[in-house]
Write a protein that binds this DNA or RNA. Structure first.
Ligand SMILES: [Mn+2]
Ligand SMILES: [Mn+2]
Ligand SMILES: [Mn+2]
Ligand SMILES: [Mn+2]
Lengths: 219, 219
DNA sequence: TAAAAAGTTTAGACGAGTCTAAAAAATTAT
DNA sequence: ATAATTTTTTAGACTCGTCTAAACTTTTTA
């Protein structure tokens, strides 16, 4: 049984390690969790004692099989709740993260099972992020950042990289980008990496390199 | 901003004081919270410092105006979540309490506002308990325990007194009693206070004094 | 490759919430 | 009205999660 705090650390380590594929340094965790490195050291010792991560002094942590399983379950809950908030309660996609950050810690397997069913077994959350199934399996198709699309074809928005701030999401809504939107690439500016796109065949806009790196589309 | 623990204490004190109408002793709180009296003393000092209760050494605590408001908000959330679990996720009425005990602490006024709307502004939870409105106002009609119904009339089940255990709720389901059921009082046994009732004009059963005290009906 | 810088851990402290054991106050029984 | 009993509070300790300051290790720079 993990505490709320342990769950948050474990999830952060999972994300920082790209799903367990690389090791994570103390300072990275401290940054992500907005705590001090000393606090992280204490916590990684605890998670390590619980066999959820392996910890080598001065060289960072790696997530274990069990750690991955537990992290994925928290992520599953987080994303199911986000989906509920948007689909059933009409939250906007930039309003859900903080609430889901709380809801993900509710302990009730039955609740999650029933919520999943109520939502009709969704495969992606409002930001296009895959929802792990009850066995922790993630099935995602290929996604590439808009800035890496070769040539001038038309692509579909699959997901957005959403960090702390919700202002990027608000910006996307404002210009008309949403999950499923069709983006026709019209032009690419060499000097600043910005791209001119046509959204749903209706609206022409320029998006910065920064933005186009965080819009994930069909390859 | 109250901690989860403070919220649970405050709610317990609210309930033990019958909504603020009487003062509550340290040992009663300790019993209700399954903690030790020494822990209660510590906590009531904190709640008293926050002006949510008044505390007189050796003579127990009384809830303040603000304390009542805060307690009612937690109760509102608890009951809205219970309603959600039963109406939308098909939980049984004996499965919701523990989960709602967690969900009631989620901090998001927007969430509660939208949940209330999603549920169509319910006025009672699955156990027939009134849901305070967003201003903390409770509107309940008259309710009396089944055992106190005079004569042999037919009454409607309005609510059930549900304590820790869910086994009473399971028992009620088993014999066919639910919120809204019509109970015709057929006979009352003097010697043990048990009552013979006909449920929905279909099923005859005997209920104990103990049970009939915890079934609240129309007067 | 030695010095400087950056990153990490340890040591010690603190607040929240809990406990046990002992002291104090209130209640009750004699 | 005093003694016995019950209730409540205090004192001191413990865990969890956090912090700062100091010590230590690794990495970078010159
Ligand atoms: Mn969280
Ligand atoms: Mn998301
Ligand atoms: Mn609770
Ligand atoms: Mn209830």
């Amino acid at each position: 049984m993990l505490s709320l705090t342990e769950e948050n650390y474990l999830k952060a380590i999972y994300h920082l390690s790209d799903g367990g594929s690389k090791s994570v340094l103390t300072n990275e965790v401290a940054d992500a969790m907005s705590t001090k490195p000393a606090s992280v050291t204490d916590m990684v010792k605890k998670l390590s004692a619980k066999k959820l991560i392996t910890y080598e002094k001065y060289y960072g942590v790696t997530i274990t099989k069990q750690g991955k399983t537990d992290a994925l379950n928290i992520i599953r809950k987080h994303r199911l709740w986000e989906t509920f908030l948007v689909q059933k309660l009409n939250f906007h996609w930039d309003q859900v993260h903080e609430v889901a950050e709380q809801l993900e810690h509710i302990q009730s397997p039955l609740l999650i099972e029933k919520l999943d069913e109520f939502l009709n077994f969704p495969v992606a959350d409002p930001h296009g992020h895959p929802i792990p199934d009850k066995n922790g399996k993630i099935h995602t198709g290929q996604q590439i950042p808009l800035c890496e699309v070769p040539g001038k074809k038309t692509v579909t928005v699959l997901a957005v990289n959403v960090k702390e701030s919700s202002s990027f999401l608000q910006y996307l809504s404002k210009i008309g980008v949403y999950i499923g939107a069709k983006l026709a690439i019209l032009d690419k500016a060499e000097f600043d990496g910005s791209i001119e796109i046509m959204i749903d065949g209706k609206k022409k806009v320029f998006v910065s390199k920064e933005a186009s790196q965080n819009i994930l589309v069909t390859p």
